[in-house]
Amino acid sequence: MSATGLDGRSVIVTGAGSGIGRAAALAFAAEGARVVVADLNPESATAVVQEIEAAGGGAVAVTGDLSEQETVDRVTATAVERFGGVDVLVNNAGIMDRMSAVAEVGDAEWERVIRVNLTAPFLLTRAVLPHMLAAGRGAIVNTASEASLRGSAAGAAYTASKHGVVGLTKSLAVMYRDKGIRTNAIAPGGTRTGITVDLEPGAHGPAVLGAYMGNIGRPAEAAEQAAAIVFLASDAASNINGVILPVDNGWAAV
């Protein structure tokens, strides 16, 4: 029996094909959880499932755009049908913006970032809540960002989306705490994930933000972010609810 209480639990991790999501999926599986590996990229999702199964764990891949209801429904149904319910939801999938200042943000950039980073977690959370409520328990962990704590860590669209994730997290924590459901978030600082940012040369946003990037400190490894996610989802955090936990090597303290 895992000391975290995660052994045998059904866990959904989004963006699980790479980066923090992959590290989280592997970490949950190592604790004995059964993992729905949700990702946009079929090859990446399948590779993570194979890695988990090779280590003796249980996992299944579901691929598609999580900002679309049809994908959300498939992810939820797969967890229920294959693993008997949804004990833990990790809303981790997200995309960066172009570090654009408000005057530089086009409609397409704004709408896509908000849709993926904020609307998709809302849709999936709404879908799994009936199952958690029926079970009388559940843990939700969202991936916010250092950009959810300040205005100097990303562009306008990304910053607004991650501030929205914080609001969603706190609302869920209050609304469902008496139903046995906890909701928390991590706020990663700089992390080695391979994500690149498509900067517009000479744009105002990146020029302003560059002055603040020296405060990042040592970038985290994806596994360090995953460890915080697993902790917040585990029984060890049974009275922690509504917390936004910076995992940023002290960047939030600067």
Rank of each mutant, 00 (worst) to 15 (best):
V72C: 01
A93D: 06
G242S: 04
E43K: 13
P121K: 01
T125R: 03
H131R: 06
N142E: 05
G8M: 01
R74E: 13
V116P: 09
D198M: 05
A223R: 15
V174G: 06
E31V: 00
G15Q: 04
A77R: 15
G202E: 13
G17W: 07
A103S: 03
G189I: 01
A54K: 11
E224S: 10
A185M: 10
E200G: 11
N117T: 02
A135W: 05
V88N: 00
L118M: 08
G84M: 02
H204S: 10
L123F: 00
T143L: 11
E200D: 15
E31L: 02
Y176G: 03
R9N: 04
T125H: 06
M175E: 14
A120M: 02
V86R: 01
G155W: 14
T143V: 15
E53V: 15
G136H: 07
T4G: 09
L123R: 13
T196N: 03
A127D: 01
A25S: 14
A237H: 07
G167I: 10
V36N: 06
A108H: 15
A79S: 13
G106Y: 00
E146P: 01
T183I: 07
A222N: 09
S152T: 15
P201E: 05
G194V: 02
A160D: 14
A16D: 00
D7W: 06
R177V: 10
G138N: 04
V11K: 10
V116M: 05
V60A: 14
L66C: 01
L89G: 09
R9T: 14
A227T: 09
P219M: 12
A156S: 15
A24N: 03
D73L: 10
G202T: 08
V105A: 06
G32Q: 05
P130A: 02
Y212N: 10
L66I: 14
T78P: 03
M99D: 10
D198W: 01
F28R: 04
G210D: 15
N142H: 11
I181E: 02
L40W: 12
E200V: 15
Q225H: 08
D65H: 04
R9Q: 09
D235R: 12
R74C: 09
